[in-house]
Design a protein around this nucleic acid. Structure first.
Length: 576
DNA sequence: GCCGTTTTCGGCCCGACTGTTTTCAGTCG
């Protein structure tokens, strides 16, 4: 049975939940949670590592015991320790932990006092007024549980980064207008550029006299105030997006920004470093005894523990602290490094602007080149091009290039990868293009081996240049295809072709850890807008953040190259 | 359960807010 890293992470989380309900040593619980997070973010397959005989205890947070459990899981497909725990403690209890307001202590009390083991049982107990009879619970708690269960029914998924960005922008403008407010910044997973955010963590610096907190909870988009104190408040916007506001004095800006940006795991690691140096780090600053020695800027916080500044996108405790200590932090690629865009559409297929308009907009962003990559004929809903229309477009592009100054349109196609792995257009026409972007747009649910083989075969085409949106996921609506991504990455290396980080907010595909894996394998990535209208070039900022989360540097990105360099690199893949 | 320019044992990040417990535990981030 195939055991993936995600399966192992899920089992460690489950063990941590059950141990916590059993009131186990909290540090033991944390060890399992740390391990789960580590495994989730690993760029290497644990099964492959075990098969290769690698020493898992080299991984930070994995000791003898957890290594043994991982080996058991990848070789037998199950975890005997979890099975033992599930005999002692009903496994469904871990579902109760997901109800906001219920932690391990309360879940245990509900189980012992009322025999509540499942969410439906919890709902019934709340409706029947039995919860208030448990010591430590009262009517208000019971009411909140009922409310939370109702809210869970109308489950709010995480928000796409780009959507959260819209709510963030107007809230920030509003708060900046409040008297005595100095700075407002959105921290949290938003600042780290995660593909989705669960809530917005907003930091403001203000004087004690500022009415910022009162203004915040009366913001006209606020639907509900969950909690409110002098320095912190939590609200739900009408859009169902939760927003936490934290207010500190301006002198604490850096420490608070660091604390509020997270990730939690990164913060813990930094605080431990501080602790080892006799320092205490909190959101107000870095302290030696009572004396504050840093905290006005994030740089000062890192400097206090002997580290250089670490970019927010790297702060996942996936090796960035070790890299910082060793002076090996990547110099992350930036939006300004892009010299062009290698995936875009026009009215000719399913876009909304002409190539003249697209080229003008691209040039205005400082781009030297823009690839013309319409859909191919198989994608009829998108008015995909057949060979004849493509030939005609190639002539039009030649004519347009003769007119345009300061930008070059590259002749390309986003060709469908058919279910058997063949490409939707004949070699005779593909060979005359500057580049061929291949993409899957159908049959997303093939079994893993077939799906992988299909894509590998497509990449075998001598004209194949870039694999677009490699996982095929649509955030919130379509899961990634079940494919062997490490194998696809190795195929890209051996064929000398490239993978895409698609910047459309619902795609952001490749995902960060695979982008990092590609970098480690020496495969260049294209950060592409997949623009269907001129405004879509703005999405590149989200693709850029995803790429930065994958530790990509300028040298790792195909479209940071000048046009001659780009042509040279592509020539290595075309016409073999 | 992990880990060591404090340590192979004894530590393990830190603070805000809520509700209910009259002084703090539980939860959350």
């Amino acid at each position: 049975m195939a055991v993936h890293n995600a399966d192992i992470a899920a089992i460690f989380e489950k063990i941590a939940d059950l141990l916590e309900i059993e009131d186990a040593n909290p540090f033991r619980v944390r060890a399992y949670r740390n391990a789960a997070r580590l495994v989730q973010g690993l760029t290497h397959d644990l099964k492959a590592m075990v098969e290769a005989g690698e020493d898992l205890t080299e991984l930070p947070g994995i000791g003898e015991d957890l290594a043994k459990k991982i080996i058991e899981m990848v070789t037998t497909g199950h975890c005997s320790f979890l099975e033992k725990l599930e005999k002692q403690t009903p496994p469904a209890l871990t579902e109760l932990l997901k109800v906001p307001g219920l932690g391990p202590k309360r879940v245990k009390a509900l189980w012992h006092e009322l025999d509540v083991e499942t969410v439906p049982q919890l709902a019934r107990a709340a409706r029947e007024g039995r919860i208030r009879t448990i010591p430590g619970f009262a009517e208000k708690t019971e009411a909140r549980i009922l409310e939370a269960l109702q809210a869970q029914l109308a489950a709010v998924p995480r928000f796409q980064l780009a959507i959260a960005a819209q709510y963030a922008a107007s809230l920030v403008r509003y708060l900046e207008g409040v008297p005595e407010v100095r700075r407002v910044v959105v921290a949290g997973s938003f600042r780290r550029g995660k593909d989705t955010v669960g809530d917005l963590d907003v930091l403001a610096t203000a004087t004690a006299a500022s009415p910022v907190m009162a203004r915040f909870i009366t913001y006209d988009e606020v639907a509900e105030v969950l909690s409110q104190g002098p320095t912190r408040a939590t609200v739900i916007l009408r859009a169902k997006l939760q927003v936490d506001l934290r207010v500190v004095a301006d002198a604490s800006y850096g420490a608070a920004l660091h604390y509020f940006t997270g990730s939690k795991s990164h913060n813990i690691a930094i605080r431990r470093l501080g602790q080892a140096m006799g320092l205490k780090i909190n959101e107000y600053g870095v302290f030696r005894g009572k004396e504050r020695i840093a905290g006005e800027t994030e740089e000062s916080v890192y400097a206090a523990v002997g580290l250089p500044y670490i970019e927010p996108e790297l702060r996942e405790n996936r090796g960035e602290i070790e890299a910082a200590r060793a002076g090996r932090l990547p110099h992350l690629v930036e939006l300004g490094d892009l010299r062009g865009d290698l995936h875009a559409h026009s009215k000719a297929s399913d876009g909304h602007h002409t190539w003249r308009e697209m080229a003008t907009a691209a040039k205005a962003r400082g781009f030297e080149y823009l690839a013309v990559t319409e859909h191919s004929r198989h994608l009829t809903v998108a008015h995909g091009l057949d060979p004849m229309r493509l030939r005609r477009q190639m002539d039009e592009i030649d004519a347009l290039n003769a007119e345009l100054e300061g930008i070059t349109l590259l002749k390309g196609i986003e060709v469908d990868i058919l279910v058997d792995g063949s490409l939707d257009l004949p070699d005779a026409v593909l060979r005359d293009l500057d580049l061929v972007v291949g993409a899957v747009h159908s049959h997303f649910d093939l079994p893993r081996d077939k799906q992988t083989a299909r894509i590998l075969k497509a990449m075998d085409s001598p004209h194949f240049t870039i694999l677009a949106h490699p996982s095929g996921r649509l955030i919130g609506s379509r899961e990634p295809m079940d494919v062997d991504m490490p194998r696809i990455i190795r195929q890209a290396r051996s064929r000398g072709c490239f993978l895409e980080v698609n910047a459309q907010p619902e795609r952001l595909d490749l995902q960060d850890i695979y982008a990092q894996m590609a970098k480690e394998e020496g495969v260049l990535l294209a950060i592409s807008s997949d623009a269907h209208r001129i405004q879509d070039f703005d999405n590149l900022r989200f693709g850029m953040q995803q790429a930065r989360r994958g530790w990509l540097e300028k040298k790792d990105v195909l479209n940071t190259r000048s046009l001659p360099e780009l042509r040279h690199l592509i020539a290595g893949t075309m016409g073999r």
